[in-house]
Simulated assay, not measured.
Amino acid sequence: MRTARAKGLTERAIVLRHVARNSVNAALSMSGLQVGFMFAGVLVVESVFSWPGLGSYLGAGIPVSDFPAVAGVTFVLGAVHIAANTAVDILQGAADPRITL
């Protein structure tokens, strides 16, 4: 950053070209992981607050051994998690040209 300032670049150009390029990868990686943690807690949150949703549907299906319900919810949550991580990988490739897709 010191060299970029010495070259006469504006603060905005320094932040966009040098700072954001190096810092956005960590934020994107953590957001992809947080999606998985969010889905892991959906059963507990929906049970505590009595909200209808996939977590309460899964919670109702487990005690009665409703295999299609458990498999379906697991498949949907897994597919959303994979899609979110794929989107994070694509965004990381777009944000940092050093990363190849």
Rank of each mutant, 00 (worst) to 15 (best):
74 T>H: 02
41 G>K: 00
63 P>T: 07
55 G>H: 02
53 G>V: 11
20 A>P: 04
30 M>C: 11
50 S>T: 12
100 T>W: 01
55 G>I: 04
55 G>Q: 06
57 Y>H: 05
22 N>K: 13
33 L>E: 12
73 V>A: 14
70 V>N: 06
45 V>Y: 03
76 V>G: 10
87 A>C: 09
95 A>N: 03
5 R>E: 15
22 N>G: 14
28 L>D: 14
92 Q>F: 06
57 Y>A: 15
64 V>D: 06
33 L>K: 12
72 G>I: 10
41 G>M: 05
87 A>T: 10
82 I>K: 03
82 I>D: 08
64 V>C: 04
49 F>T: 11
38 M>I: 12
46 E>Q: 09
54 L>N: 10
98 R>P: 03
60 A>W: 00
101 L>A: 15
4 A>W: 02
51 W>A: 01
7 K>F: 12
6 A>R: 14
90 I>L: 10
92 Q>H: 09
61 G>T: 06
98 R>W: 00
17 R>N: 04
13 A>P: 03
65 S>Q: 10
93 G>H: 04
90 I>V: 13
88 V>F: 04
83 A>E: 03
99 I>E: 07
37 F>H: 08
2 R>N: 14
34 Q>K: 09
64 V>G: 05
49 F>A: 15
4 A>L: 13
61 G>H: 03
96 D>F: 01
54 L>E: 11
64 V>Q: 07
96 D>P: 00
16 L>C: 05
8 G>F: 04
31 S>F: 05
96 D>L: 02
66 D>S: 08
46 E>R: 02
91 L>W: 10
100 T>R: 04
21 R>G: 00
90 I>Y: 07
100 T>K: 02
55 G>L: 09
14 I>M: 02
37 F>A: 15
89 D>Q: 14
35 V>Q: 08
79 A>R: 03
43 L>C: 01
32 G>Y: 01
5 R>T: 13
59 G>W: 00
47 S>Q: 09
86 T>N: 07
100 T>P: 00
45 V>F: 05
100 T>V: 11
89 D>S: 15
68 P>E: 07
23 S>A: 15
96 D>Q: 03
17 R>W: 11
35 V>G: 11
74 T>L: 14
5 R>D: 14
32 G>N: 09
75 F>P: 11
15 V>A: 09
61 G>S: 05
33 L>H: 11
94 A>S: 07
76 V>N: 06
56 S>M: 07
74 T>E: 05
44 V>K: 04
77 L>P: 06
77 L>F: 05
97 P>G: 05
51 W>Y: 13
34 Q>H: 13
40 A>H: 01
71 A>Y: 12
80 V>I: 15
97 P>E: 01
1 M>V: 15
65 S>E: 05
29 S>G: 15
98 R>T: 09
32 G>E: 02
14 I>Y: 01
